[in-house]
Computed example of a mutant assay.
Amino acid sequence: HAHHHDEHTHGGEHHYGHGPAHAHAPGMSQSRMLQIEQDILGKNNEYANANRRLFTEKGILVLNLVSSPGSGKTSLLTRTLQDLKDEMPLAVIEGDQETSQDADRIRDTGVPAIQINTGKGCHLDAHQVGHAVDHLNPDETSVLMIENVGNLVCPAAFDLGEAHKVAILSITEGEDKPIKYPDMFHAADLLLLNKIDLLPYLQFDIDQCIDYARRVNPGIQVLQVSATSGEGMEDWYQWLRLARQSRLVGHNSWQTANLQESA
């Protein structure tokens, strides 16, 4: 029985990795693999740019939340929504391979959410996100949080049109993650070190972890938080408010420029 392989499938014979292509596909040359990879990324970037234009027009701040599975990303997200939903318009796109449990948890906060099931796909792409945004139709000046599929490899290569990638790393995961997955940490503007309430129980060297992150990305901002105890969450909310303010300022000047053009 024939297996249908989507170009993003990381299973069976076909392996279109992101990074140097490895020709595992029988009879397919290295250069052909790279060509396919560039075509996929090129197409994705067109959609990402279209998304970005839309987000700018509507003054929507979009965050692409990335992490390994088990980082506490969904708990962090639901607590954030709970705490900020009366202060600013929020919306969520939830990327999961299969179940809708996370999307259900998010909708329970009263914040509009839409789920994208990626099936075998290991990341969201800009085309899927564009569709989801059409359905969600978030209010102007919203903050749209995209919870990407849990892994620190595939989502790094795919721009969704977001303003910032926010990497969430739990201190249960080990301080070497930033140098093991440099592409992701290099692409992120903010690193949230989550579950710091567990520090007393773990051998986790926070300074070493931050040092690794800065080696990969000297400009990365790092905040220490606990979605469970609430510690440090106010710093994250402050970061969000500032990011949103600068988006709104940009939005207003964009509108002014466009009004002048059409006048």
Results as ranks from 00 to 15, higher is better:
residue 48 A to C: 06
residue 153 V to E: 08
residue 44 N to V: 03
residue 218 P to Y: 05
residue 43 K to C: 04
residue 112 P to L: 04
residue 233 M to C: 14
residue 263 A to W: 07
residue 13 E to S: 10
residue 27 G to Q: 02
residue 117 N to S: 15
residue 128 Q to S: 12
residue 246 S to I: 00
residue 96 D to E: 14
residue 49 N to C: 10
residue 96 D to T: 11
residue 255 Q to I: 15
residue 162 E to M: 08
residue 25 A to L: 14
residue 67 S to T: 03
residue 191 L to D: 04
residue 140 E to N: 12
residue 179 I to W: 03
residue 55 F to H: 08
residue 174 G to A: 04
residue 256 T to N: 12
residue 28 M to P: 04
residue 246 S to L: 00
residue 57 E to N: 11
residue 107 R to E: 15
residue 88 M to A: 14
residue 146 I to L: 09
residue 157 A to D: 09
residue 226 S to M: 01
residue 208 Q to E: 12
residue 247 R to E: 12
residue 127 H to D: 05
residue 95 G to Q: 10
residue 212 Y to L: 05
residue 248 L to K: 00
residue 169 L to I: 13
residue 160 L to R: 02
residue 127 H to L: 09
residue 97 Q to I: 15
residue 34 L to K: 13
residue 131 H to K: 12
residue 202 L to P: 15
residue 106 I to H: 01
residue 107 R to I: 14
residue 51 N to C: 03
residue 126 A to L: 02
residue 220 I to R: 01
residue 82 Q to D: 14
residue 77 L to N: 01
residue 35 Q to P: 00
residue 132 A to Y: 08
residue 114 I to V: 13
residue 62 V to K: 02
residue 111 V to R: 00
residue 90 L to E: 08
residue 213 A to Y: 04
residue 216 V to Y: 02
residue 246 S to M: 01
residue 195 K to G: 03
residue 10 H to I: 12
residue 90 L to R: 04
residue 152 L to T: 04
residue 72 G to Q: 03
residue 74 T to C: 12
residue 231 E to A: 13
residue 105 R to S: 09
residue 234 E to W: 04
residue 106 I to A: 03
residue 118 T to G: 11
residue 164 H to A: 07
residue 187 A to G: 07
residue 83 D to A: 12
residue 14 H to M: 09
residue 109 T to M: 00
residue 102 D to H: 06
residue 159 D to A: 05
